[in-house]
Simulated scan of single mutants.
Amino acid sequence: MLTAVAIAVDGLGFAAWLFLSSVGLTLIYGVMRILNIAHGGFYALGAYSSAWAIGLYTQTGNTMALTYLIIPLAALIAGVVAGLVVERGILRFLYGRDEVLMVLVTYAIFLILEDVTKLIWGTDSYVAYQPAYWLGSIDVFGLPYTVYKFLIIGVAIACGLLLYWGLNHTRVGKLLLVVIEDREISAALGINVTLFFTITFLIGATLGALGGALTAPEVSVVPGIGAEIIVMAFAVIVIGGMGSIGGAMLGALIVGFARAASVHLYPPAELFSIYLVMAVVLAVKPYGLFALAESRKI
Rank of each mutant, 00 (worst) to 15 (best):
S21N: 04
G24M: 03
L25G: 03
T26Q: 04
I28Q: 13
R33D: 06
N36M: 04
H39P: 00
F42N: 04
G46L: 02
Y48N: 00
Y48V: 02
Y48L: 00
S50N: 12
W52Q: 09
A53S: 13
A53D: 10
I54D: 00
L56G: 12
L56I: 12
T58E: 15
T63F: 15
L66D: 01
T67L: 13
L69E: 09
L73G: 14
A74L: 06
A74Q: 10
A75G: 03
A78W: 02
A78L: 00
G79L: 11
G79H: 05
G79T: 09
G83V: 02
L84C: 11
V85A: 03
V85T: 05
V85K: 00
G89H: 04
L94T: 02
D98R: 00
E99R: 14
E99N: 10
M102V: 04
V103M: 15
L104C: 06
L104K: 06
T106V: 07
A108G: 13
I112K: 14
I112L: 15
E114L: 13
D115L: 15
V116D: 03
I120W: 12
W121N: 07
G122D: 07
D124L: 14
V127A: 13
V127R: 15
P131D: 10
W134P: 04
I138M: 14
I138C: 07
D139T: 14
